[in-house]
């Protein structure tokens, strides 16, 4: 938890060296540091939701049990989609860093589309579950399941919004190589959401769940 000591920059804005923000105390960009600090905090948020689910996964009462209702092949496909969106995200960043605006736009759009595909899959999954009798109020298991995956879905959706904002920004000509850090930071968020899903996919879906 203790950050390193180096202190290369004077913190006041008086001198040219300072005003840039390079040579911040840690030598790191404030924005990126902020995002990482935030992601550290998010670990506790998802940890809480995942633990809640794990505590409740066998408490399905008379409703459908997780082991009966999960459609592993379907979820595998949508997990794969989300995983690949991380690749396209990183390609978007790499294109922008090279100054390749065209490819940057293409990959940003692809990432947003893959994210939307994932969300679409989740909507489909939810409606199927509801049709099969697993409503939000059916059991502690169902509430915990929908809340956990719903929170993740909201995070993905916010990520899509950010990607679309970046894309609009790019189309207006303002997303240039100099601003690649913005893309990188959105990317960090996006990959984090992906990493959370890697966890959820294994622990919630693939590890055998209780059946009724």
């Amino acid at each position: 938890m203790r950050p390193p000591r180096p202190l290369r920059r004077p913190p006041l804005a008086d001198t040219a060296a300072v005003s840039h923000g390079h040579g911040t105390g840690t030598g790191l960009s404030d924005n990126k540091l902020l995002m990482w600090v935030f992601l550290g905090s998010e670990c506790l948020l998802f940890g809480g939701l995942i633990s809640t689910y794990l505590i409740y996964r066998s408490r399905f009462g008379d409703g459908p049990a997780p082991g009966d209702i999960f459609d592993i092949p379907f979820t595998s496909v949508s997990s794969f989609v989300l995983l690949m969106s991380s690749l396209t995200m990183v390609l978007a960043l790499s294109a922008l860093q090279r100054g390749d605006i065209r490819n940057n736009r293409i990959w940003l759009l692809t990432t947003a589309l893959l994210g939307s595909l994932f969300i679409g899959g989740q909507v489909y999954e939810f409606t199927t579950f509801v049709r099969e009798g697993l409503g939000y109020s059916t059991s502690p298991f169902s509430s915990a399941f929908f809340t956990l995956t719903g929170f993740h879905g909201v995070h993905v959706s916010l990520g899509i919004l950010m990607l679309m904002s970046l894309l609009i920004s790019s189309l207006r000509g303002t997303l240039t190589t100099e601003r690649s850090e913005t893309v990188e930071i959105v990317g960090l968020y996006w990959h984090f959401v992906d990493v959370v899903w890697i966890f959820i996919f294994t622990v919630i879906y693939l590890v055998p769940s209780p059946t009724s």
């Binding site: 938890m1 950050p3 390193p4 840690t26 030598g27 790191l28 990126k32 540091l33 990482w36 600090v37 992601l39 550290g40 905090s41 998010e42 670990c43 506790l44 998802f46 940890g47 991380s86 690749l87 995200m89 990183v90 990188e184 990317g187 960090l188 990959h191 984090f192 992906d194 990493v195 890697i198």
Partner: peptide, 27 residues
């Protein structure tokens, strides 16, 4: 994913520390 896509391999170890401290504490 964290190492390559999130660049933790190349980036400052401080970022890793923040992320890992969140993870470890949560765990």
């Amino acid at each position: 994913v964290a190492a390559w896509f999130m660049h933790l391999r190349f980036d400052s170890p401080l970022f890793t520390k923040f992320f890992v401290s969140g993870l470890v504490l949560a765990t």
